[in-house]
Amino acid sequence: MNITLRVWRQKNSDAEGRMVTYKVEDVETDMSFLEMLDVLNEKLTTAGEDPVAFDHDCREGICGACGVVIDGVAHGPETTTTCQLHMRSFKDGDTITVEPWRAKAFPVLKDLVVDRGSFDRIIQAGGYISAPTGTAPDAHANPIPKADADRAFDAATCIGCGACVAACPNASGMLFTAAKVTHLGMLPQGQPERAARVVKMVNQHDEEDFGGCTNIGECAAVCPKGIPLDTISQLNKDLLGALASGNLD
């Protein structure tokens, strides 16, 4: 099949960007979206034009490196990562618009590559359990009800790709933050730091210039790992609880 691509091109973070149109021919339906971009880049390189920069690594949907907005939807028409989106989801002759994640907290570095360091800083603020190496009790010391373990796991599957932010009309990073708060908050090991964690992470989230959450739900609708929206409510509950108990740190 033949595809027309409109791709955001931007030389570096300071440069002005623009949409550029390319034709990609002989696209096979079994190709992944990124393999289709590989084909474009091989063609551009051979023609002496700068290839399109995009982030990607594992290409099996788990590292969270890849992610672009395709025709207005983060990661495109299937609910999966961009690397696991295949060209069979498109038709011959389609025009596809490809843009980077747009958020002030994710500045564009080049073309479709953005800087998601703000996510790391949210984790630094408190997205962990303080368990220095060697201090752990036996793994069976603390049985955990399966329901809690499962809920923690569902939240823990977040891959930090940033689609939630890209899709949110407010450019909020609340689903990402809430996933971590819920993952750790559901486990007995996570209790001692629970109140302080949520306050510190939300403060950091706000400091990074993410927008506020208004419970629209676009984030969960595009999340390739299906992080449930109720994690945000859990975060709110934990936060109100923490604030009520005077944990204002």
């Binding site: 962990y128 359990i129 368990a131 190496t133 201090t135 752990a136 793994a139 373990a149 993952h183 090991q189």
Partner: peptide
């Protein structure tokens, strides 16, 4: 395993 559980790794239960 002890270390990872203490960190909050949600192993299957």
């Amino acid at each position: 395993i002890d270390q990872c559980v203490a960190q909050g790794v949600p192993f299957a239960r």
